[in-house]
């Protein structure tokens, strides 16, 4: 298939940047979106042009590195997938595809389609962990009884790969789905309960300081999340936060 691509090009953080049009030909419908980008970059290199910078790593939907806002949606039009799992058969021959970086003040563009997602790391560092010593004297995991129900919910929350699609899709650039997944995965387990109050307070504080917007419950994040993280996590985080602040 032949496609017209309108891609955001930006030389560096200070550059203004602009959309540039490219044509690609002979794209196989079995290719992933990133492979299509590889083909385009090979063409650019052959013409002595600077290839387009975009993030990627595992290319199997588990690392959260690939991003791209495709035709107005993070990870493109399909549901429950990352961009590396998006197939070109989702598009039609002759289509025009818009490709942009994640847009949020807290995710500044580094180059072309790559944004700086360190804000997520700093939120994690503010409390997304449990302080246990794991060197040598670890307990048997089954020594602490955990209900199946909570273990499942915690596992679902832990599926978040920190990609940032929730922020990218949200009209408010809110990071609540990400933060609530990280808060929930611990809050649901006995090991996480010990530091639950400090965790939620510190992570929310860091989230606010990074300049993410405030959730208005539009639900866009849940629809666009490649890992199906549920809005229930945001309600849980709000409960945890209220408990930690008031009681």
């Amino acid at each position: 298939m032949n496609l017209t691509l309108k891609i955001w090009r930006q030389k560096g953080p200070q550059d203004k940047g602009q959309m540039v049009e490219y044509k690609v030909t002979d794209i196989s419908e079995h290719m992933s979106f990133l492979e299509m980008m590889d083909v385009l970059n090979e063409q650019l290199v052959a013409k002595d042009e600077v290839p387009i910078a975009f993030d990627h790593d595992c290319r199997e939907g588990i690392c959260g590195m690939c991003s791209l806002h495709i035709n107005g949606e993070p990870h493109g039009p399909d549901r429950g997938i990352t961009t590396c799992q998006l197939h070109m058969r989702t598009f039609k021959d002759g289509d025009t595809i818009y490709i942009e970086p994640w847009r949020a003040k807290a995710f500044p563009v580094i180059k072309d389609l790559i944004v700086d997602r360190m804000a997520f790391e700093r939120i994690q560092q503010a409390g997304g962990y449990i302080s246990v010593n794991t060197s040598g004297n670890t307990q048997d995991a089954n020594a602490i009884p955990i209900s199946k129900h909570n273990a499942d919910l915690s596992m679902d929350a832990a599926a978040c790969i920190g990609c940032g699609a929730c922020v990218a899709s949200c009209k408010n650039s809110s990071a609540m789905l990400f933060v609530s997944a990280k808060v929930s995965q611990f809050a649901l387990l006995p090991q996480g309960k010990v530091e639950a109050a400090d965790r939620v307070r510190n992570m929310v504080k860091q989230m606010d300081e990074e300049g993410f917007g405030n959730c208005t419950n539009t639900g866009a994040c849940e629809v666009e999340c490649p890992k199906g993280i549920s809005l229930e996590n945001i309600a849980r985080m709000n409960r945890e936060y209220l408990k930690a602040s008031i009681i």
């Binding site: 107005g72 949606e73 039009p77 847009r103 003040k105 650039s173 629809v223």
Partner: peptide
Amino acid sequence: ASRNVNYVKYNGAASA
């Protein structure tokens, strides 16, 4: 203000 550069194409209706 939390999105200082807007998308050229933003399909908000697709998800909310």
